[in-house]
Computed example of a mutant assay.
Amino acid sequence: MHKHAMPQEGSDTFNDQVRIVLVETSHSGNIGAVARAMKNMGLGNLWLVNPSSFPDEASYARSAGASDVLDRARVVSSLDEALADCILVMGTSARGRKVPWPVMAPPQAAAMASEHSAKGRVALVFGRENHGLSNDELQRCHYHIHIPSNPDYSSLNLAMAVQVICYELRMQYLRGLEEGESSAYLEAMVAPGDNGWDVPPATVNDVEGFFGHLEQVLVDVNFHRRDNPRQLMSRLRRLFQRARMDEMEINILRGVLSAVQKAAGTQQSGKKHKPTAEPSADEGRE
């Protein structure tokens, strides 16, 4: 069905930790072209969310020898499934959203993705060929990536967009080889996942559970109306996503939410949040 693949260059950090996520790709040939772009730059972790057609002959034909990337590709039914175990999510987007989101160009995005790949899984998300990612999907991202193309002709083919980002990742990888290992004593510790941080970063699944719990509590105390939401949850999402929470912080916040529900008499039987690690008395306060 397809040509034998050339060996994949070894790079555990990038191959295993950085995943390229394509959402509802319409043309299977574009999936093959993306696989080729990835392998050109030493990447091999491809996730597909509800592709219209895959696998098929067109995808393997367009991969031009990167069939091993397609062979290992994961097909999932939802974006949440593709992101659940990631600690950093970055989605490609045009500028000009109603609620501005943290946005950066490909070189800065690649540097951040490379840094975080040493701490946990990183997802780089690309949308549909005709209209990209939805607002809801973009709100799943910590940061947006904007490729500063010609404003008079800004539309990029899906594989071209992936190639731009993968090239910047490749440059980060090569620079890392040249620099060698840095002293642990000189490394900054500013966020979960950094060397010396006491608790692992919260996963996307943990954070989504918190956002669902938070919204329910705001409804319970009559602060938020689902039938007239305005921008409340979007702005709260932006606030908490900027904080880059760890697992203990999520547990403490959900414990607070459960206490609010109990005090308000709105906590349903069997719905009480059970943290994965119970904080001690000292950990829950300054």
Rank of each mutant, 00 (worst) to 15 (best):
H27D: 04
S114T: 01
H146S: 13
V99Y: 05
F210M: 11
R140P: 06
V89C: 14
T276H: 12
S59G: 10
S234K: 13
L88Q: 08
H273A: 11
D198H: 08
F54I: 00
N205G: 14
H213G: 04
K3R: 08
D194G: 04
N30Q: 03
F126I: 02
V18N: 05
S28A: 14
R36F: 04
S26M: 06
Q216S: 13
A33W: 05
E247D: 08
L177D: 08
Q8H: 02
I147V: 14
P107V: 02
S149E: 11
E249G: 06
D80M: 09
L79F: 05
D227W: 04
Q241P: 03
N30F: 05
V207T: 13
I250R: 07
Q172H: 03
A123E: 01
I145R: 11
Q261I: 08
S52K: 12
S234F: 07
F126P: 15
L48K: 13
L186K: 07
E187Q: 11
L83S: 15
F54Q: 15
L156K: 07
E278G: 01
A58Q: 11
L22K: 05
E129V: 06
D136C: 01
S114F: 06
S11F: 07
L174Y: 01
S93A: 15
N50D: 11
M6W: 06
A191C: 08
M160F: 01
S63W: 00
F240Q: 07
G96N: 10
S53E: 11
L124E: 12
S78M: 09
G42A: 08
D71K: 04
V190N: 14
T276G: 15
L46N: 02
H146D: 02
M1P: 12
T266P: 15
E249F: 01
N135D: 12
G265Q: 14
V76I: 12
S59A: 15
G270E: 07
L83I: 05
S280C: 14
M160P: 02
M90A: 15
P200H: 00
G265H: 10
T92Y: 10
R74C: 13
A61Y: 07
S53M: 02
A73G: 09
C141H: 06
G193F: 03
A264G: 15
F210Q: 03
R95H: 00
S77N: 12
I252W: 14
A118I: 06
G42F: 07
L88Y: 09
W101H: 14
V199D: 03
A259V: 08
L83W: 06
Q139C: 07
P7I: 00
N157L: 01
F126Y: 10
I165C: 14
S52N: 10
E208C: 09
K98D: 10
D152N: 13
M41W: 03
